[in-house]
Simulated scan of single mutants.
Amino acid sequence: MDWSSSLQGLAGGILIGLSATWLMATLGRIAGISGIIGNLITVRPRGDSAWRITFLLGLISGPMLLMLLGGNLGNVAGAPGEVIGQPAGGVVLMLVAGLLVGVGTGLGSGCTSGHGVCGLARLSPRSLAATLTFLATAIVTVFVVGQLSGGGA
């Protein structure tokens, strides 16, 4: 077992939980990324954009700062020296997948961060149903893609 990765995951989870709690405690807002971005783009209430932009800049700048300081994001590419790696199915598949995620986020009235982190913490039955649906869909998708690619999941 790689304790370093486990501790990094634990630290990341704690930071996500603290940031979600801070946002709820200070602004009364849920840290759901789809809602933060969606309302920034479609709904522009006066004085409501600054925290959304700051939140999004933090999401982007945190990993960038870590990389600039020589930190490790974890090798999710599977090859030394790569951080993310090449798309498994090409750009068109990535665009289709992104659109499907967007449609699912709209149908589910939120995303995994909103329902899975914030909604479950508030004991929301709707968020429990959404999170279980996300997980079941992910499990089925991994299985089907594994079968189609010949890898067997």
Rank of each mutant, 00 (worst) to 15 (best):
G85F: 05
G70S: 07
I53K: 00
L73D: 12
E82K: 12
I84A: 08
V76E: 06
G102F: 05
M94I: 05
G85H: 05
G102I: 06
A77C: 12
S61T: 11
M67P: 03
L99F: 15
H115Q: 14
V76R: 13
C111T: 14
A79V: 12
G102P: 14
G70Y: 09
C111V: 13
P80I: 00
M94S: 14
G104R: 02
G108E: 02
G85M: 05
T105W: 06
A97E: 13
G116R: 03
W51Q: 03
L107W: 14
A77P: 15
G74D: 04
G78R: 06
A121E: 04
G110R: 05
M94Q: 14
Q86S: 14
G71C: 12
L120D: 08
V92E: 10
S109T: 13
P63F: 04
V91N: 03
I60H: 03
P87G: 09
L65A: 14
M64A: 13
S109H: 13
I84M: 10
G74M: 02
P87H: 06
L68H: 08
C118F: 02
A121T: 14
H115I: 07
G78P: 15
L120W: 03
S61Y: 01
G114H: 05
I53N: 00
G106H: 14
P80G: 03
G110T: 07
T105N: 15
G81T: 10
C111H: 11
W51R: 01
V101N: 13
L68T: 13
V91H: 05
